[in-house]
Design a binder for these strands. Sequence first.
DNA 1: AGCTGGCACTCCCGGTGAACGAGTGCCAAC
DNA 2: GTTGGCACTCGTTCACCGGGAGTGCCAGCT
Lengths: 350, 350
Amino acid sequence: MDEPKLDRRRLDVLRAIVEDYVATQEPVGSRALVERHNLGVSPATIRNDMALLEEEGYIHQPHTSAGRVPTDKGYRLFVDRLTNVKPLTQAERRAIHSFLDEAVDLDDVVSRTVRLLAQLTRQVAVVQYPSLSRSAVRHVELVGLAATRIMLVLITDTGRVEQRLVEVGPIEESALGELRARLNAEIVGRRLAEVPALLEDFARRSPGGEVQAAAGPPLSAVDALCAVLLEMIVEQREERVVFGGTANLARFGHDFPDTIHPVLEALEEQVVLLKLLGEATAPSLLTVRIGRENELDQLTSTSVVTSGYGRGEDTLAQLGVLGPTRMDYPGTMGAVSAVARYVGRILEQA
Amino acid sequence: MDEPKLDRRRLDVLRAIVEDYVATQEPVGSRALVERHNLGVSPATIRNDMALLEEEGYIHQPHTSAGRVPTDKGYRLFVDRLTNVKPLTQAERRAIHSFLDEAVDLDDVVSRTVRLLAQLTRQVAVVQYPSLSRSAVRHVELVGLAATRIMLVLITDTGRVEQRLVEVGPIEESALGELRARLNAEIVGRRLAEVPALLEDFARRSPGGEVQAAAGPPLSAVDALCAVLLEMIVEQREERVVFGGTANLARFGHDFPDTIHPVLEALEEQVVLLKLLGEATAPSLLTVRIGRENELDQLTSTSVVTSGYGRGEDTLAQLGVLGPTRMDYPGTMGAVSAVARYVGRILEQA
DNA sequence: AGCTGGCACTCCCGGTGAACGAGTGCCAAC
DNA sequence: GTTGGCACTCGTTCACCGGGAGTGCCAGCT
């Protein structure tokens, strides 16, 4: 597995190349390398090492008389073995806390997180709403708006609130109250994923058995409400993802082969965003996908750093950032990780 | 007011220049003009007209031996007097209906509208949420989540739902019910703007006068709830705006002087977006702001087409699109106007 | 008075070629 | 294994130049 040909110094050279290239955005040559890092050897020696690194596919020469640029494989090795997550500065840490502490509801937490990540990493931020199906029911509310019109509100313990209008036959206020109580007794505290099973034959299990109680709501209404409730849960399983900080893509247009157009296009597709964030991982477990490791053609010149976030061991969703492959990996990873952790903590309090 | 120097033909020339320039994105010369439009005169004649139009500031020559390009003032005249809103095709009309009819709640309406506008106009779409302060209270719900924890949910007749957690002293379920009923009796159906006045001394007007009724909620709790309710209304007055379709900005990067960076940056500022949409105008009254007519420096090479939308005569908010000044004004105006009208109709049903 | 063809002029654009310089690979020597 | 030297490659920059598009102006025509 290990490349025995890559001894200590060659790895140092690779690291130096990545660092310099990320900093300057220009192919780095042997002379510049020995000047900026004290490698203790001459440029000629470095050239030999470079030739080897190129042979192994870690770096690449845009044209004959140019310096070297890391390949995706080179970045991969750098991320895996040559660097560590960079801890945030005290100031950054404070910024995260003060910025997120002001959030008033879930929408606000998410939108603040997007802005925060974008600003911290100077890249495009992507944040997924806490998964509905993995959270639990905190309360269901039935509000009679008109004689035949009910608003059904579902509140989860992650602070998410979903509502739908339901048209039913005429229903008494008292019957509505009873139904509300019964419904809540049944499903409050349960995972959303469990709810469909619990409501299986909820309507027929109405109190009073076979005989419809006088004050009870009509069966048809109960059925209609349950149906809509289930629909909300199922439909919302298609997770919502928001992004921001696209201006950062345009800062240096030359980071991208032709234009940023395909990248922007990709970002505007919910499906793509979801794929981008990937499978849920344990909270604060960082995932890095570099260049062609991303499946989408439009994103082969970008890298994505993501992390799960959640309460304790529970992963509720993913968040992360997207940028050019030549990104500051240690710094980005530090920021993503710190933000993910803090968002998780915020959700615990809610 | 009228420019007497601009006779019929000169206006035709200006219109032709705008149309050709928008279509080709290249300065248009006198020869090309007579070829593509049957103006019935020779290029030399057109050149004289062009010289005059330039003198009056409607067109401009990038350099000595180039064709002409419309100025902001030229576009302005074009929009005001030389063209009409282009009606949509049957297919586009159908697309609007089928796309928006599927929306399940307000969030969905807004996000679908953004995508729809972006796709229809091939530009950046900007949509403001229906203004809270201009809508009316449909219902206020108090949900006891724990002994001392209440969720306050505000539902407006535009379908907007806002919620907040409130910590209060211990409170009986029955007291909560009574308070809920009293609160709703007081403010349901009223404009949000009126609510602060109505709640002025709501707590002290508790039933039973001076003497606190046994079952009534503690004064402190009522006060706390009212305070949060007011806060929601005030805070939410800062309207929410969402945008999409930024990929359209990058389609032809050359539409913008340097890069699209400043434009993207501007779009990510809520404050800027709000300014962009401008003051509320009557529903389906189109506003066009061209180039430097926009106050922001970053947006001087863009144009914005907006329209109010709402129920009947009531304007609830604004929506519109942003693109390069060289945009297809008639088509864009048609699309914005049609979408605004249909979104208004959807909200009426909700 | 307005329109037209002709013509000289301006200036962008694309291609060519030379000088330059950064960076390399290789080799002989240490 | 490392080093200095050296020839070589190739992209970049700049000056130069011809072609061409488009103009402004003018004299003549209707």
